[in-house]
Amino acid sequence: MDFKPIKAKKIYEEIIEQIKVMITRGELNPGDKILPERELAEKLQVGRAAVREAYRALEAIGIIEIRPGEGTFVREMGSKPMTDIMSLAVITGKDTLFELLELRKIVEVEAAGLAALRRTEDHLGEMKRWLNLMKEEIDQGSLGDVPDTKFHYAITNAACNSLLTRTMNSISETIKQEMKTILTNMYRTPGTPQQLYEQHKRIFEEIASGNEMKARTAMFYHLDRAEKILKKEMTTFECKLP
Score class of each variant (00 low, 15 high):
3 F>H: 12
3 F>Q: 14
6 I>C: 11
6 I>S: 15
7 K>L: 06
8 A>T: 12
8 A>G: 07
10 K>V: 03
24 T>A: 13
35 L>H: 07
38 R>Q: 09
39 E>W: 01
42 E>G: 02
43 K>F: 01
43 K>H: 03
47 G>P: 00
52 R>H: 14
53 E>D: 15
54 A>V: 08
54 A>C: 09
55 Y>V: 05
56 R>W: 07
62 G>Q: 11
69 G>L: 04
69 G>Y: 08
78 G>P: 01
83 T>S: 07
84 D>Q: 02
88 L>A: 14
89 A>F: 08
93 G>A: 05
100 L>K: 02
101 L>F: 04
103 L>M: 12
108 E>F: 03
109 V>L: 07
112 A>V: 08
115 A>V: 06
116 A>Y: 07
119 R>A: 15
120 T>M: 07
120 T>G: 10
122 D>F: 01
126 E>Y: 03
129 R>G: 00
135 K>Y: 04
136 E>C: 02
137 E>V: 04
144 G>T: 10
148 D>L: 00
150 K>I: 04
151 F>G: 04
153 Y>V: 03
154 A>I: 01
155 I>P: 00
165 T>C: 03
177 Q>Y: 04
180 K>C: 10
183 L>R: 10
184 T>K: 03
189 T>Q: 09
190 P>N: 14
190 P>G: 14
197 Y>T: 09
199 Q>T: 08
200 H>Y: 06
200 H>A: 13
202 R>G: 01
208 A>I: 02
209 S>V: 05
209 S>H: 05
211 N>F: 02
211 N>M: 06
214 K>S: 12
216 R>I: 11
221 Y>R: 13
224 D>H: 08
227 E>S: 05
229 I>S: 10
230 L>K: 09
232 K>C: 03
239 C>L: 08
241 L>C: 04
241 L>Y: 06
